[in-house]
């Protein structure tokens, strides 16, 4: 059973696929866009852009440190570099370069980390970016986004190109449920309420938004009204949406495909603790590395399920 199936959501594209298509199209409109790759462009899908715009696609080899600083240099000559790799390698391997070559000088670089979370599956924990949101949020002035589906990823890709300044966009490997329609709006820093509810609020991002929708569907059968918020921007976080939830619902559950520390849960808790504190519970990977296995099996084993969200809701409701 995939996340979103309970609610009848259809499986759509992987967010990385949507990103690749969107970037290619944006490349026609913005001649400043360039891509800088560490030889995984066919995985991150920047290859789609680079094939359409070969003079603007730079594959610097398996050398993430150099890759990130090259992107910083390109930005200082007026270009809009999109530097992409697996989230684990981009954030963990090249963190100092992101800090010094991008964040500190506020370079207009768009960092895209794909294959985030444990849902990459069989390749195993060395490839799973499960701490990337925490690391990205620790960089002053960097916008951090985690998108839930193909449509919102395309809109997020366009929004980050239009935005002036450093951005980190987190994407996943597997195909995920469709949450949005083309008519839905997407604005950096403004959460989207996917489902209204007044008993409890489930704040999620990435593929856990579909899990949250499933949980809300099941909870409704039991007479519990759950609000579902897609907090696609972790930084700057939508303080208003969280404060509203603390006033209008009695508890908050945060669900994310990330470690317990430093991710969306931490960001939401910081707002809640300063607003009207309400009971909170968290659904995440916890404090461990995962393992190889099939993606759905991993999500089940590590508790990233609608059932885990429902259990969390009942704990705090």
């Amino acid at each position: 059973m995939y996340l979103g199936e309970i609610s009848g959501l259809k499986v759509g594209q992987a967010t990385r696929d949507a990103f690749g298509e969107a970037l290619k199209e944006l490349g026609d409109k913005y001649p400043e866009i360039v891509t800088v790759d560490g030889d995984v462009g066919n995985s991150t899908r920047t290859e789609v852009f680079a094939k359409a715009h070969p003079e603007r696609g730079f594959n610097v080899g398996i050398a993430e440190s150099n890759m990130v600083s090259v992107a910083g240099g390109l930005a200082s000559t007026g270009h809009i570099p999109v530097v992409a790799s697996f989230a684990a390698f981009l954030l963990c391997n090249a963190y100092d370069q992101i800090r010094m070559s991008i964040a500190f000088p506020s370079m207009n670089v768009k960092m895209v980390g794909t294959h985030a979370g444990i849902s990459i599956g069989e390749d195993g924990p060395s490839q799973m970016g499960i701490e990337d949101v925490s690391l990205a949020c620790s960089l002053p002035g960097v916008v951090v986004m985690v998108t839930a589906d193909a449509v919102s990823t395309k809109k997020a890709t366009a929004a980050m190109i239009e935005y002036e300044g450093p951005v980190y966009l987190r994407l996943g490997r597997p195909n995920v449920a469709e949450i949005y329609s083309e008519d839905d709006t997407f604005e950096i820093g403004k959460a989207n309420t996917i489902r209204e509810g007044d008993d409890v609020t489930i704040i999620a991002n990435g593929l856990m938004v579909a899990g949250a929708v499933d949980a809300a569907t099941k909870l409704a059968e039991e007479g519990i009204s759950a609000r579902v918020i897609d907090m696609h921007t972790v930084k700057p976080i939508d303080v208003d949406a969280i404060q509203k939830a603390t006033r209008e619902t009695s508890a908050i559950v945060v669900a994310e495909e990330h470690l317990a520390h430093g991710g969306l849960g931490s960001a939401v808790a910081m707002v809640v603790s300063q607003a009207t504190p309400v009971p909170m519970a968290y659904v995440n990977v916890g404090d461990c590395f995962a393992e190889s296995g099939d993606p759905q099996g991993l999500l089940d084993k590590y508790g990233l399920t609608a059932a885990a969200i429902i259990e969390a809701v009942k704990k705090v409701k």
């Binding site: 440190s65 600083s69 090259v70 910083g72 390109l74 570099p81 010094m100």
Partner: peptide, 21 residues
């Protein structure tokens, strides 16, 4: 032209600027 101080990054930044130029 570059914020430096964490050693090792200047040449990569220079490559980015040279490609940009």
């Amino acid at each position: 032209e570059a914020s430096t101080g964490s050693l090792g990054q200047g040449l990569s930044l220079g490559i980015g600027q040279a490609l940009g130029a």
